[in-house]
Amino acid sequence: MQETPFTLRAGHLLPYCMSDSNKTDFTNPSTFILLGIPGLEAAHIWISIPFCTMYAIAVLGNIAILFIVRREPSLHVPMYYFLCMLAVTDLVLCMSILPKMLSIFWFNSREIDFNACLTQMYFVHCVSVIESGIFLAMALDRYVAICDPLRHSIILTNPMVAKVILAVVLRGSMIVLPYPFLARQWPYCRTNIIPQSYCAHIAVVKLACADTRVNSYYGLFVLFGVLGLDAIFIAMTYIQILRVIFSLPTKDARLKTFGTCGSHLFVILAFYIPGLFFSLMYRFAQNVPLHFQVLFPNMYLFIPPMLNPIIYGMRTKQIRDRLLRLFTHKGP
């Protein structure tokens, strides 16, 4: 979430074999040390199995979504354009985090360059904001399709969809841009050890020897002022959609109409609810074991990218039929 789901608390310094240079004053260290899952280092190999599985499913599933939508002319409509954008952001998120995470689990390669850490931080949080914007765009698409179906093709033309996608990407890119710049300006004189498996914004700045409240306030602004507002607008949109659905005359009509947005609603809930919970937990929870604070939110980062293609593939007839044709080789 989110900072969103997305941000982990650096917490207390962990027992770790630090060199003297890690204890002396320095500004903008050349490298950070990522611990992986603190307290569970002996189980890193076993922990890597579910992460690697989720990564493989997410990459293959989202690439399959992109391939099917590209090859199937009937899917060249706004809903599937937004779904393709969601697949691209999921791929970027996975590739921004997991390769380094697996190198920690498999090869104990804990060092990450300072600039690489800030770059990873930017992409992780940028993708989260972009995904939130995509979910809002998809909700608006479903609202127009269900509440004003006769004007759907007039309102959501291809140029309009392109503008919406561009606006979502620019918004995410600009809103998260202060994160690395704020993190770069602080002196780091405590340690360069991050008790995490990736460079989350709040985990990095908590190592700074300065008053970093501006970072925390800005992170809360992104969490509530951006992602929170997106969630509110999505909720308002679905309230209107449900009102229209329940006003339909027959049960079959209600079920059929709800089926067109059921997948999207489930994906949204899987994105926002755990993300908000974990973001607040790492800011305010004091007695949660550190390995829990790191392990489960890290797994959560890969659950939406893994679930999105599965949910849309299983519940979307056009995608499901195309997949069946691919595996049974019954023509294009």
Rank of each mutant, 00 (worst) to 15 (best):
R243I: 10
V214S: 09
V161F: 09
I49V: 15
M174T: 06
I193Y: 00
V161C: 07
V176W: 00
Y188E: 03
L150N: 11
F246V: 14
D25N: 05
P78H: 12
L324G: 12
C126I: 03
S263F: 03
G331Q: 14
S247D: 15
A203D: 01
P305E: 10
C209S: 02
V214G: 03
V69W: 01
V92W: 06
A43S: 10
A162C: 15
A64D: 12
Y80L: 09
I104Q: 11
L166S: 12
D113F: 04
W186M: 06
L290S: 06
M314V: 10
I47G: 07
S263D: 05
N62W: 01
R320L: 08
M236V: 09
R190Q: 00
R71M: 13
M160D: 07
T53Q: 15
P297F: 08
V69N: 01
A137S: 09
F327E: 11
P38D: 11
P178L: 00
A87S: 13
R71E: 07
S279K: 03
N115I: 04
L301R: 09
A58R: 04
H12N: 09
L248H: 13
I63H: 07
L323W: 10
F181Q: 02
Q2A: 14
T4C: 08
V204K: 02
A285N: 13
V77G: 04
L83K: 03
K23H: 01
A200N: 06
M54W: 15
M281F: 11
V169W: 03
